[in-house]
Design a protein around this nucleic acid. Structure first.
Lengths: 295, 295
DNA sequence: CGCTTAATTGACACCAGTCAATACCCGTGG
DNA sequence: CCACGGGTATTGACTGGTGTCAATTAAGCG
């Protein structure tokens, strides 16, 4: 237990790139297809948890690139019931699709850092750059697959199985510290309420299930947001995602590590690469000009 | 009751284009974006209910265009439980996306008529023709929206509300004969089991709900597959789709009527139009050559 | 130290799934 | 014409899980 507390600090800070929290990194370049998204400080926006990113009402002239944090796509029923339809993770683009109805919206689930992209600019890029298009397609496919899973599990699985699946998946999308004995410590960044609304259940049930899993020696509760997963394969099996685990998490983990590679050595050189085609990357020193290519 | 029986014949025949059942129409041209899909008889395939169209295992080198009928996207749990994730309707393209996992598959839910399209050919067309791409995008958007609805309703709505929503939506995707008094007769083409597996419930519950609705004078049961909807707006409201009803059914009804216009006057002239860009439609008399453009 | 918020635990009712039996429809074949 | 059989729909009785409501505890914060 005490040895675990030495690991937990990973949980602090926000989503994926702790370095982004540093005061004004001022410039960054983010990979997307063969293009680089160059967001100057003026194109970046930090969002606090529960703040709105896109609502159905607002025209939403912008597309958003997620630098860090987790966004949630949600819809409310007449009685106020909220259901989370999907989560969006670092490296993904949101807001390009058709305007949602008035009842659907995207909000920040955790502290997030976004990068604003002009809609028409992005449209143009997608039309011109087939590599970007392919990459964007792949994102859509990933998101679709996640939605398929959620839909299926809501109807075919029990709440406990759904939570097991989520915990297993979380090892790839949230801070997870593997230990030498095969177990690992997971930092759950999603509020309990969000987990409940995503899995179509209640916070009370989540709490009961968590403690039930702890009783069955499948997990160990460090604190309400940190669990030690004693049997990750077992979790995946209970959630019936063992056969698709790799496939579902591949794209996610990929984009995440890509972002980390970019964000990590950010303290070295102010040069920002921008290009629209593979092999045609253009080094740009003036960050204002660079950020204008892809607002 | 007797006046209703004079209406029900609409229910017979299969899905949407009864004329397609005629012996060997041999040629047809179907609109998709600015292109026309010209399926000669050898590219067409009729599928019986429950026959497989795409499985995760099979490489599936082909893309399918739905001429008539309803296809279902489904997945099985370990215990055999089946969940239908989505339905596909006439005018839509399936099979272009990433290969599914082994557990997911597409089958015919009703008697269906499909049109086989070579994958690479379609890929090329999508890359070249931005209008087709836009149309294809719109299809994907529609499908995504339906999936969003299903996901949301599985968690936020009760089984009865889900059925109400499905009935309301069905007036746009299944034979529906409006009557002068504002009511109308709906022919449900989906087997009871499919309805249950789509809405995440059981056939027993479906039966109970149907009779409950009849008791509440919201519908009238003509026979297990034909209902007289006494209060369509009420149904939509119960299903909480009243505010998005038009939006959700627009694309579907659109494609359906498009297909009917094409299929209806099929007995006139053997000329088959094929073209890749708007305004560049090329009349082709040799149907073999025509069908080769887009196999 | 008292406030607010989140997490937990308990008691309870009710809905919906399960299982089993029956009714119904629609072929076939006698 | 009726008897038979297979599939589907319906109905009933029962039970278990899960939501709901309420109370308690724990934790963060001024």
């Amino acid at each position: 237990m005490n040895q675990l507390s030495s690991v937990t600090p990973v949980a602090n800070g926000h989503a994926v790139t702790p370095s982004a929290r540093a005061p004004e990194p001022a410039r960054c370049s983010l990979p997307l297809g063969s293009a680089m998204i160059c967001g100057g400080a003026r194109n970046r926006e930090d969002r606090a948890p529960d703040s709105k990113v896109l609502t159905g009402c607002a025209p939403g002239q912008d597309v958003w690139f997620i630098r860090s944090g987790i966004l949630r796509l949600q819809r409310h029923a007449y009685d106020g019931h909220r259901q989370i339809l999907s989560l969006f993770f670092p490296g993904e683009i949101v807001g390009f699709d058709r305007q949602f109805g008035g009842e659907i919206s995207i909000e920040a689930a955790t502290q997030s850092s976004l990068c604003r992209i002009d809609r028409r600019m992005f449209q143009t890029l997608v039309d011109e750059d087939s590599t970007l298009r392919a990459d964007f397609f792949r994102q859509k496919q990933d998101q679709l697959e996640r939605l398929h899973w959620l839909t299926w599990s809501l109807a075919a699985l029990g709440p406990d199985e759904r939570l097991c699946a989520l915990l297993a998946l979380s090892t790839r999308i949230m801070p997870y510290q593997p230990l030498s004995d095969g177990t690992g410590v997971l930092s759950v960044q999603l509020p309990r309420k969000d987990i409940a609304d995503l899995l179509g259940t209640t916070v009370e049930s989540i709490s009961r299930i968590v403690h039930r899993l702890a009783g069955a020696r499948i997990i160990e509760i460090i604190d309400p947001a940190h669990f030690r997963l004693l049997d990750l394969p077992g979790l995946a099996a209970r959630g019936q995602i063992d056969s698709i685990f790799e496939k579902m998490t591949f794209g996610l983990a990929n984009r995440r590590s890509q972002l980390e590679h970019v964000a990590a050595p950010a303290a070295t050189d102010p040069v920002c690469l921008c290009g629209r085609q593979a092999g045609l990357l253009t080094p740009v020193n003036d960050r204002r000009a660079a950020s204008d290519i892809l607002v």
